[in-house]
């Protein structure tokens, strides 16, 4: 059995038809019986196949925080980028390399595009060009709510990289382009603390 769950991406009304994302995750329907979809979504995202190209799901701060706090990660790196942002594009391969290198040690990487609605296509194309084969987010809603929801300390500069521990606690925040070594240091510090969330 390979249950398939359809999720209507959370797009505000009046911005065109909602994008339907088909994701396959065998464990999710069972979990859905006793947890909200918000907790199920990160599991879906983690398990979704790359067969249909980059999956970009609209998300507000609460949705991203749910994905951060979902069980199973010892450290979570959230990279907020935009397709037109030069420094974001430049550091992007290092974010992906870090994910590849530290995923087995408990790192979860969450990519959030801050592209405007009319640049959604550019965001998808960039993810495709970068070979991103896992689902990611595009933020919706007002900037300030989104920023304060994720990290009050974030002044709004892009790119922004936020590192959380396994309990969903913000541990580090960097604005602007970073090196692979910086990303790695930010994450390893949290991995070494071993604040893994129980129950995963």
């Amino acid at each position: 059995m390979d249950p398939v769950v359809s999720i209507a991406a959370e797009r505000p009304a009046g911005r065109g038809a909602g994008v339907r994302v088909r994701l396959s995750a065998p464990m999710c329907p069972r979990i859905r019986s006793f947890v909200p979809l918000g907790l199920c979504l990160p599991l879906l995202l983690a398990a979704a196949p790359a067969a249909h190209g980059p999956v970009l799901t609209a998300a507000d701060a609460a949705s991203v925080k749910k994905a951060i706090a979902a069980p199973g990660a010892k450290a979570v790196l959230v990279n907020i980028w935009a397709s037109w942002c030069g420094p974001c594009r430049e550091e992007f391969p290092d974010v992906l390399k870090l994910r590849k290198d530290l995923q087995s040690q408990g790192l979860r990487v969450i990519l959030v595009s801050a592209d405007f609605d009319d640049a959604r296509k550019d965001a998808v194309e960039f993810l495709q060009a970068m070979g991103v084969d896992f689902p990611s987010f595009i933020r919706v809603g007002k900037d300030e709510e989104f920023m304060n929801g994720l990290a009050k300390e974030w002044t709004g500069v892009l790119p922004a990289t936020l590192v959380y521990d396994g309990t969903g606690m913000l541990r580090d925040l960097r604005e602007g382009k970073q090196s692979y070594a910086t990303f790695r240091g930010m994450v390893e510090k949290v991995l070494q603390d071993g604040s893994a969330r129980p129950g995963s």
């Binding site: 706090a69 069980p71 990290a151 300390e153 974030w154 002044t155 309990t167 969903g168 606690m169 913000l170 541990r171 580090d172 925040l173 960097r174 604005e175 604040s195 969330r197 129980p198 129950g199």
Partner: peptide, 22 residues
């Protein structure tokens, strides 16, 4: 337990950010 652990963690620790973070 997950929920309780999360609440406890939130209650005990404020985010510790690098000095040069912002």
């Amino acid at each position: 337990p997950v929920f309780l652990a999360a609440v406890a963690a939130l209650a005990l620790a404020a985010p510790v950010l690098a000095d040069d973070a912002a």
